[in-house]
């Protein structure tokens, strides 16, 4: 199944194909190339939406993929490949944010304050006023709630998948998402004086 047209495959079939290429020594390199091409963009945006900085995201993406390369041969297929990779990215990003929060607390500032301060001046952030207001509202959410919101709203992941990634129940996630959406809408409306 080496020269398969991936465009004709479902997501699940694509992932199985990638895994079978990687498991075989002769096709491993090709398997890695497909894995990277399939997931690097999605992982990038998942992380970027959490950490905001392009430079930090770039570092984290590479670290996540190194973890993926090191552990993929022992991947047990109990979950989908994409879920497994998103899970690594989620946990790695949370750890990064925890350490950032800790370092900022020593300087009596918060991660969110620093992001807001730098966001408008960031050349890799281009938003009109409404979008900036939205991003500020999202930034005001607790870290895990923010992660759930962005995975559902921006990445269109199912609650089932997010549950597997975050090791949280679907019910708790739906509640969390609902609360997050309400908070954001309220903040956006307040800012817009509607």
């Amino acid at each position: 199944m080496e020269n398969v047209n991936l465009n004709n495959l479902s997501q699940e079939e694509k992932e199985r194909h990638i895994l079978s290429l990687i498991k075989n020594k002769k096709t491993r390199e090709k398997g890695y190339a497909l894995l990277i091409s399939e997931f690097s963009g999605r992982i990038y945006w998942q992380i970027r939406r959490m950490v905001y900085s392009h430079e930090d995201t770039d570092d984290l993406v590479q670290e996540v993929f190194i973890k993926v390369f090191e552990n993929i041969e022992t991947f047990n297929k109990k979950s989908k490949l994409s879920t497994w990779i998103f899970s690594i990215a989620y946990n790695h990003t949370l750890n990064f944010l925890k350490s950032k929060t800790y370092r900022n607390s020593k300087k009596n500032s918060s991660f969110e304050q620093n992001v807001l301060a730098s966001l408008e001046a960031d050349s890799l952030f281009d938003a009109d006023k409404a979008t900036l207001t939205l991003e500020k509202a999202v930034l005001s959410l607790p870290v895990k709630q923010r992660a759930v919101f962005q995975m559902r709203y921006y990445q269109d992941l199912s609650f089932a998948q997010i549950a597997q990634i975050t090791k949280t129940s679907e019910g708790a996630l739906k509640a969390s998402y609902h609360i997050a959406a309400e908070k954001i809408e309220k903040l956006v409306l307040q800012e817009s004086n509607i």
């Binding site: 963009g41 392009h54 890799l124 281009d126 938003a127 979008t131 954001i184």
Partner: peptide
Amino acid sequence: MISKDNPFKVPEGYFE
């Protein structure tokens, strides 16, 4: 509801 426009940019050729 809320716009899904992506305000975050990447340097040119970054993903390649």
